[in-house]
Design a protein around this nucleic acid. Sequence first.
DNA 1: CCCCAGGCGTCCA
DNA 2: TGGACGCATGGG
Length: 225
Amino acid sequence: MKKALDISSLYHCLKSFYGPSGWWPGETPFEIIVGAVLTQNTAWTNVERAICNLKTSALLDFETMTNAQDDLICSLIKPAGYYNIKTKRLKNLLNAIKTSGGIEHFFSLDTSAMRDMLLGVNGIGEETADSICCYAAGKKTFVVDAYTKRILSRHNIATEKASYGEVQDIFINSLPDDLQVYKDMHAYIVFICKDFCRKKNPRCGECPVGSLWGKPALKQPSAVQ
DNA sequence: CCCCAGGCGTCCA
DNA sequence: TGGACGCATGGG
């Protein structure tokens, strides 16, 4: 009988395939915080344009962005989409960090205090909070996203309706209790979903863990005749 | 023309 | 508690 795929062997397979992930893409912790908000339901290429605009205007800095006009932020992050709501979310977050003691104090919080603080901000949900904790602040949290859930459900490790916390627990209980492992594993999941689910990619089919893992949801077979 | 992308809050049953 | 909906741009 076929051996069930498990998270741990998946991790080791991907680690030998990709090596160190080098994630998150971003030069500074602040850039990672901003990127985490901008990438909500948005293609990363569009986020890159927005971040480039912010960088060019020297707005990629905690104090500067906190004090910037909303209209300016809106215009710069436009390529990332949802620019009105994302501007509010960024401001909500920056103001919360400022009010609660500043950016240095924020980074000094322990994992659960930081996560709870972030979840208290309107516009910051579990994935964004964990992304900031893990990649901007180096806290040991595992990030769950749409790809992560898709992969588990495709392989019948979890159902499509599994909650964020349920999926997260599956990984936490299967992987070494280690920040770098958490960072790399989430990155690998994004890598395989991006690298192997697009027809234009010539390497499609070479996925070390199966070529279907990253493909978008199949269309619901409408009432077969 | 369509669907998709590293979500989230609000509204309503 | 949970499902539908709006938010918006750029690429395939």
